[in-house]
Amino acid sequence: MKIKKEVIYFLLLLVIILPLIFGISFKIKPTEPVINFFQEINSLKKGSFIVVTISFDPSTKAELLPMLDALTYHLFKNDIIPVYMNPLNANVTNLGYLSIKKIARKMKKKENSDYYYLGFVPGDKSALQDMGEDFYSVYKKTFDGKDLENFNIFKNIQKISDFSLLIDLADGNSTLDLLTYINTKYGVPMASGVTAVMASEYYPYLNSGQLLGLLGGLRGAAEYETLLDMSAKARRGMSAQTFAHILIFILIIIGNYEYFKGKRHGNN
């Protein structure tokens, strides 16, 4: 039996479209790394300052933007003050900023008092190092051009270790860089949200306690949304994902069956 590739693509498209149109959803059971991530944020006191580094490109926003949205919602709900920045990725500047602004508007949070967005600075790893010694040598202004010195709340912060937690949302090596330069060197507790492709790479850092929590791909974002009791993009996407996985299982079984059948008849 031969299945044309166009048929496979069509079937894949169908199993993704239908759950999205009809809003089919499944119960998602959160896993330990996501629960730890969630509890770590819940354990922070009201008014705590945390850093959220947005280190992904628009090409991976499918997985990481739902994480950013859910995280922002969680932080605002708990009255924690996030300081967003993207020192390791220039291309995400507007994407992150607009997404946070949208949630802030819904939850009636004000920029430069309930949250801060600092944007991109050049310097890569040397910028991270400098933040450990003197935060203001790297960031002097917010993304919208306001001097950080003018905000009373920033007077308690001199270096990166003055923040309670660092969360990185990444599609590259930034989590490892931040672990190396911020967590190991300055002892800032750290959690991370990464793309599915990278998740298995970071489990050793989770086991060693260097990462306090980990969100892996769309599944991680959906588990996080479940814990927050919100039904947003990730949970909707996971039902389509489940159907697509079932289709792939069936295709693998058909492929193997045909392979072994052909082998038995001496035909490779």
Partner: peptide, 23 residues
């Protein structure tokens, strides 16, 4: 195997995002 499984999940997430945006 775990990495490969996660890779498929990642690629499907991109497709889902495209289809959802399209919709």
């Amino acid at each position: 195997g775990a990495s490969f499984g996660y890779t498929i999940m990642g690629r499907l997430s991109l497709l889902i995002e495209v289809v959802d945006m399209f919709r």
